[in-house]
């Protein structure tokens, strides 16, 4: 049986889906019995998700940068 201390060590491969099936099965067993670890897993996955979704979105190009980019396009191409 795997313990809480094993979770952090194995979490990366668990989330990536690259754990050996036997190890994954044992970790699944642990998650079923350990609410704090399942919560840790949930927030770890959320972190990856919000990073991907929010990292570079909704950033407006400042007007000065937009003007310089337009000038660059006219000059270089």
């Amino acid at each position: 049986m795997l313990g809480c201390c094993d979770v952090e060590r194995l979490l990366f491969d668990y989330v990536q889906g690259t754990l050996e099936p036997e190890v994954k099965h044992r970790l699944d067993d642990h998650f079923r019995d350990c609410p704090p670890c399942i919560e840790f897993l949930r927030t770890y996955r959320q972190t990856i998700d919000v990073t991907r979704r929010f990292c570079c979105n909704r950033v407006e190009i400042p007007p000065t940068v937009r003007t310089k980019l337009e000038e660059f396009i006219h000059a270089e191409f």
Binding site: V59, I61, R66, E70
Partner: peptide, 21 residues
């Protein structure tokens, strides 16, 4: 070449977001 300006207009904000990070 005008397609480049449109590219900046349509996708520039996300490109800038990536560059800024």
């Amino acid at each position: 070449k005008s397609a480049l300006e449109e590219l900046v207009h349509v996708h520039g904000a996300k490109m800038y977001g990536v560059a800024l990070q």
